[in-house]
């Protein structure tokens, strides 16, 4: 069994220490220009054991998980996997006592993305499949109440008739028959 030097490495099954800062991840990243810290700087922070600072950056929530960085890394560091690991640790830290230790309030991009992804998973947990209307509703309401500049109704209300007109609006979502097993899978993975 390989020994990984940091929790990020073991979660992402990669070796961030291999990174020699060529910057190819950042050069190919489609959203690097929007990030407070570009991917190569995040890799450096993790190398130095400063993953807390990497977890606090808004950048990990702007990452679109396109995998370009990992595909191009000459040292085969799974940079996109590291981003996943940072998000997973950051999202779970927010629900625990670690939150009080965090200096800064999470950025809107982070809160929007986490709210969306949690609503997405809740939706699967309930139905086994995504019910788009329910998901959009839940995300919008939570985002709006959380004042995350998520417009509650206007834009979507304007789009709904067009979706319906194009035969793309489903008022009744699908549910799988065996929802019991879906619930148990979630329980075993998230609470087990």
């Amino acid at each position: 069994m390989q020994q990984f030097p940091s929790p990020i490495d073991s979660l992402a099954h990669t070796r961030v220490t291999e990174c020699y800062q060529c910057g190819k991840c950042t050069a190919g990243c489609p959203v690097a220009e929007r990030m407070d810290r570009p991917p190569n700087q995040l890799m450096r922070l993790v190398q130095l054991g400063l993953q807390e600072r990497a977890m606090e950056s808004e950048a990990i929530w702007l990452c679109v998980a396109c995998q370009t960085c990992s595909a191009r890394c000459p040292k085969s560091v799974d940079c996109a996997g590291v981003m996943d690991a940072l998000r997973e640790l950051s999202a779970s830290a927010k629900t625990s006592a670690d939150q009080s230790a965090r200096k800064s309030v999470p950025a809107p991009a982070q809160r929007r993305t986490v709210i969306f992804q949690k609503a997405f998973l809740q939706n699967i947990r309930r139905n086994g499949r995504i019910n788009e209307l329910e998901l959009v509703g839940e995300f919008k309401i939570r985002g709006f109440l959380g004042d995350l500049s998520v417009p509650l109704l206007m834009k979507d209300a304007l789009l709904a008739p067009r979706l319906a007109q194009h035969g793309k609006l489903h008022l009744v979502g699908e549910r799988v028959r065996d929802r019991g097993v879906v619930g148990r899978i979630f329980q075993r993975c998230m609470e087990g």
Partner: peptide, 25 residues
């Protein structure tokens, strides 16, 4: 028959094990 959601990017961002278990089902 009775396929379930693969978890998409939400699962792999929030819980690694779930991102394997949903496709595994």
């Amino acid at each position: 028959d009775d396929w379930i959601c693969c978890g998409a990017s939400a699962a792999h961002s929030i819980n690694h094990k779930l991102s394997q278990a949903l496709p595994a089902r």
